[in-house]
Simulated assay, not measured.
Amino acid sequence: MGAEPANQAADWKTLRGDVEGIADVAAERGRSFVEAARSHATNYIDQRKGDAARSVTDLATSVRESSKTFEAQPNIRAFFDSAADGLEHLGTSIEERSFSEFYEDAEAFARRAPVAVAVATFLTGFVVARFIKSTSAAPLNSTHPTSHRL
Rank of each mutant, 00 (worst) to 15 (best):
T42H: 07
H144D: 11
R29W: 01
Y44D: 09
Q47W: 09
T61G: 12
A84P: 10
D81N: 15
H89A: 15
F79T: 11
E20H: 07
G17A: 13
A110L: 04
S147M: 04
T57V: 07
S55P: 00
A129M: 07
V19K: 06
R130T: 10
P5M: 00
A9P: 04
F109Q: 07
A60N: 01
D85K: 14
N141E: 04
R48L: 13
E96P: 04
K68E: 15
V127F: 13
E28T: 14
R111L: 11
I94V: 13
P5L: 02
T124W: 08
H40V: 07
A108R: 09
E4I: 14
S93R: 11
A110P: 01
V127L: 14
G91E: 06
E65R: 13
P139W: 00
F122Y: 07
E28M: 06
V56R: 05
H148A: 15
S32C: 09
F80I: 00
E28G: 04
A84V: 09
K13F: 11
N7A: 13
G86T: 07
F102E: 09
I45L: 15
A118Y: 01
T57M: 09
R48V: 08
I94P: 01
V117P: 03
A10V: 02
D46P: 00
L15D: 12
T14C: 13
R77Y: 01
P145N: 03
A129C: 09
S93K: 13
A41M: 14
F122S: 06
I76V: 15
E95A: 12
K13R: 15
N7E: 13
S134D: 09
F109K: 10
